[in-house]
């Protein structure tokens, strides 16, 4: 009984990603897409917070949105899985519900 959470905001703009990660349960999945992909990069002021809060969930980032923003896969933080829209669809199907953190 797991939940897919989606986050589409940069964590440097507002608290949405941090709030989301504060409400996940072990085994949940979190997908960062649109401007949310900025939360998936390493070496930022928030990388450690994301890794710490997201330790017991599966973290994903949407490839097409990374590419659109010129973020090379090499800049993804450790533990983040790169997926495309097919993978997004699979995540929605595999999890029991989707919570979109708007």
């Amino acid at each position: 009984m797991a939940t897919l959470h989606t986050v589409n905001k940069s964590p440097f703009q507002n608290q949405t990603l941090i709030s989301c990660l504060g409400h996940t349960k072990a085994g949940d999945a979190v997908l960062m897409f649109e401007d949310g992909v900025y939360g998936a990069t390493k070496g930022t002021a928030l990388s450690d917070a994301v890794a710490g809060l997201g330790a017991d969930v599966k973290l994903y980032a949407l490839g097409p949105d990374l590419a659109a923003r010129g973020i090379d896969a090499g800049r993804l933080a450790d533990g983040i899985t790169l997926i495309d829209y097919d993978g997004f669809v699979d995540l929605v199907a595999e999890n029991d519900r989707t919570q979109n953190w708007l």
Binding site: M1, T3, G22, H23, T24, K25, R97, T98, Q99, N100
Partner: peptide, 10 residues
């Protein structure tokens, strides 16, 4: 978080 995890539709 428990309330959210208990839902069918969010």
């Amino acid at each position: 978080a428990d309330v959210m995890a208990d839902q069918d539709v969010i």
